[in-house]
Simulated scan of single mutants.
Amino acid sequence: MLIMKRLTALLLCLIMLLALAACSKDENGLRKVTLNEVTRSVFYAPLYVACSKGFFAEEGLEVDIVTGGGSDASMTALLSGEADAALMGPETGIYVTNQGKADHPMIIAQLTKRDGSFLLGREADDSFDFSKLKGKSIIAGRPGGMPYMTLLYVLRQHGLEPGSDVEVISNIQFNLMGGAFESGTGDYVTLFEPTASAFAAQGKGHIVTNMGLESGEVPYTTFMMRKDTIENEPGFAAAFVRAIYRAQKWVWAAGDEEVAYAMQSYFPDTDIATLSAVAKSYRATDSWTKVPTMTEDAFTRLQDILDGAGELAARIELSELVDNSFGEAAISEIG
């Protein structure tokens, strides 16, 4: 009995310590937040703007961004409690939900609405056509990831069957795709910015098409939080989404060079001219969402893509995975 009491007391202490750690504040009284991002990309510009322009700080948050290197790693960090929030593809949330986990994370905000990658070939091709991919190979990321599944969707839209008409290389880790292409693997590769532009500038590859324009609108990158975090700290979740929404509004109102300077500290090896050009490209293709909420139609299209890739165990309702309440509140408050 004494041992059980001591174990119970120890368990309670551990729970209290974890709670204190999760809600710890710095010397300025800001709530410390660990955010795990799937990869580092200009595609996520509004996130970096929320940090650099002080929108998180104004909401009482100090955000530390950790790069996971893949949606699986980001989801693991979120589920384990290593991260308070995570930025990753919404498909990962669908997979976890379909595993029957009642405590699966929830999507609280959407950041991007198109594939943010570009298709690069080994030769410049101003007259590129998808028919030229027949008999070729493409490094496409890993099965189950949005870059991979979106590529399959686009290929089929152009009458090409992956695996028979085109070899889709899917055994290379996401953050190693550029290096693999540079070393001679594949005829083509899909890369995000600023890597795509850097490869083109250095003659390592040539951008032939924008995958986002080819795929159409689809929820591509979202912010997720654990259910217990949302239930225990709704004020934190609301503050986080408000900061993101304010950054979204700022990005769409600012000039490309302003956006470039606002996120330069997150891309120290990329010059302002390149960051400005990339920001202009993503703006022109309407890649960034203007509001943090997700629509029913977009969620359906996402599941259509997963289904076409053979990765959808069962369809789920929007409300099972997406909590638009914080986004709706932010829009109502801020306008």
Score class of each variant (00 low, 15 high):
residue 6 R to E: 15
residue 7 L to W: 11
residue 7 L to M: 15
residue 8 T to N: 13
residue 8 T to K: 15
residue 9 A to P: 10
residue 10 L to T: 12
residue 10 L to S: 09
residue 12 L to S: 11
residue 12 L to R: 11
residue 12 L to H: 12
residue 13 C to Q: 14
residue 13 C to N: 08
residue 13 C to Y: 12
residue 16 M to D: 14
residue 19 A to C: 10
residue 20 L to K: 12
residue 22 A to G: 09
residue 22 A to H: 14
residue 23 C to S: 14
residue 24 S to D: 11
residue 27 E to L: 06
residue 28 N to T: 11
residue 30 L to S: 14
residue 31 R to D: 04
residue 31 R to T: 10
residue 35 L to T: 00
residue 39 T to M: 10
residue 39 T to C: 11
residue 40 R to W: 03
residue 40 R to M: 09
residue 42 V to W: 07
residue 43 F to T: 03
residue 45 A to C: 04
residue 46 P to C: 02
residue 48 Y to G: 06
residue 48 Y to F: 12
residue 49 V to Q: 00
residue 51 C to R: 01
residue 52 S to I: 00
residue 55 F to A: 10
residue 57 A to C: 05
residue 57 A to P: 02
residue 58 E to K: 09
residue 59 E to Q: 14
residue 59 E to R: 06
residue 59 E to P: 02
residue 61 L to T: 03
residue 63 V to Q: 00
residue 63 V to G: 00
residue 64 D to G: 01
residue 64 D to T: 10
residue 65 I to E: 01
residue 66 V to D: 01
residue 69 G to R: 07
residue 70 G to P: 03
residue 72 D to Q: 07
residue 72 D to S: 11
residue 73 A to T: 05
residue 73 A to D: 01
residue 74 S to V: 03
residue 74 S to E: 04
residue 81 G to R: 08
residue 83 A to N: 04
residue 84 D to G: 09
residue 85 A to Y: 07
residue 87 L to H: 06
residue 87 L to D: 05
residue 88 M to Y: 10
residue 89 G to H: 05
residue 90 P to Q: 00
residue 92 T to N: 04
residue 93 G to K: 01
residue 94 I to M: 00
residue 94 I to A: 04
residue 96 V to A: 02
residue 98 N to Y: 03
residue 99 Q to R: 02
residue 99 Q to M: 06
residue 99 Q to C: 02
residue 101 K to H: 09
residue 103 D to R: 02
residue 105 P to W: 02
residue 105 P to M: 00
residue 107 I to K: 06
residue 109 A to C: 07
residue 109 A to V: 07
residue 110 Q to R: 12
residue 110 Q to N: 14
residue 112 T to H: 10
residue 112 T to M: 10
residue 112 T to P: 06
residue 113 K to N: 15
residue 113 K to P: 10
residue 113 K to H: 15
residue 113 K to C: 12
residue 114 R to N: 12
residue 120 L to H: 12
residue 121 G to F: 12
residue 121 G to Y: 15
residue 122 R to Q: 15
residue 124 A to N: 13
residue 124 A to Q: 15
residue 125 D to K: 07
residue 125 D to T: 11
residue 125 D to C: 13
residue 126 D to S: 12
residue 126 D to W: 07
